[in-house]
């Protein structure tokens, strides 16, 4: 077994419930690498909702809250407000975060509250057996879009950027090194950090959504179907880049280290009003 697993994972709970080749395990490992690199595991708590990706933190030897469908961010906000000095990492999926939890995502991003949200986007509801999600591409045939998905997929990175999230990155499971760095940076950043990870669900989405069902080929597809955004100096505070030649931009898409964070604003107001 991997030595970091032995340090950070409740090995008695293994194997994980993820299907063979699921991207969640890769993200699980990238996050523990980030915790290891930061060296502050005792100051980190994880919160997750419902869905396959929300099982990621349940195996960690950390304080973990496995909560209700869509509400992870709301739970995390309460926890953060109670313990402002700690770092809260939210693991969520595309359905959990953007569909049922959309309202909490919208408001947490607008508050720019210091949370790190890792959204695993596999374009499908995997746990329930392969139904369309808010990010399912147009035309994809799923269990609940048998004639092809007709809804415009939601670009969650664009959504949170437009609202005021101050660290927005997108990576894929085929970029584990960059993903680990993004998670570490997101945790270090004081503000709402949103990291979308394009992941694979070889079992429930497979050919219908990615055109491939072999995990390694889906990941190969992610490498080919994306381009790494290289901004010009100072260009990270604006809108996020658009797809080019049908390729999705990945990388650090938006970063505003000076954006005022929610808890800082609260403290400032309380000081200004003489309450504290």
């Amino acid at each position: 077994m991997n030595r970091l697993y032995e340090k950070y994972i409740k090995t008695e709970s293994l194997p994980t419930l993820f299907c063979p080749g699921c991207g969640n395990g890769i993200i699980q490992y990238a996050a523990i690498e980030a915790f290891e690199r930061l060296g502050i595991a005792e100051d980190i708590a994880c919160v997750s909702g419902i869905g396959c990706s929300s099982w990621i933190p349940c195996y960690y030897k950390l304080d973990v809250m496995h909560t209700m469908h869509g509400r992870a961010i709301a739970f995390a906000e309460g926890l953060k407000l109670a313990r402002p000095e700690k770092k809260i990492v939210v693991f969520t999926g595309d359905g959990d975060c953007v569909a049922i939890g959309g309202n909490h995502l919208v408001h947490a991003a607008a508050r720019n509250i210091d949370l790190t949200v890792i959204m695993v986007n596999n374009y499908i509801y995997g746990m329930t057996g392969g139904q369309k999600s808010p990010t399912t591409p147009k035309g994809a045939r799923t269990k609940t879009s048998p004639f092809g998905c007709i809804d415009q997929p939601i670009d969650s990175c664009k959504l949170v950027t437009s609202l005021g999230a101050s660290y927005v990155a997108r990576w894929t499971t085929a970029h584990p090194v960059q993903l680990e760095k993004a998670i570490a940076d997101g945790i270090s950043h004081k503000g709402f950090s949103f990291i979308e990870v394009l992941s694979q669900c070889p079992v429930q989405a497979g050919k219908n959504v990615y055109g491939e069902k072999e995990p390694s080929k889906i990941m190969e597809g992610y490498k080919k179907g994306t381009y790494i955004y290289k901004p010009q100096a100072g260009a990270l505070t604006g809108d996020i880049p658009a797809p080019q030649d049908g390729k999705i931009p990945i990388g650090l898409l938006h970063y505003d280290p000076d954006a005022s964070e929610y808890l800082q604003r609260v403290e400032e107001r309380l000081k200004a009003e003489g309450v504290r």
Binding site: R71, A74, G78, L79, L81, A82
Partner: peptide, 16 residues
């Protein structure tokens, strides 16, 4: 943002 979030946030805070 809503009552669902409120109930969830207090549970989160209690664990804090």
């Amino acid at each position: 943002e809503d009552e669902i979030g409120s109930a969830c946030a207090i549970i989160g805070a209690r664990w804090g």
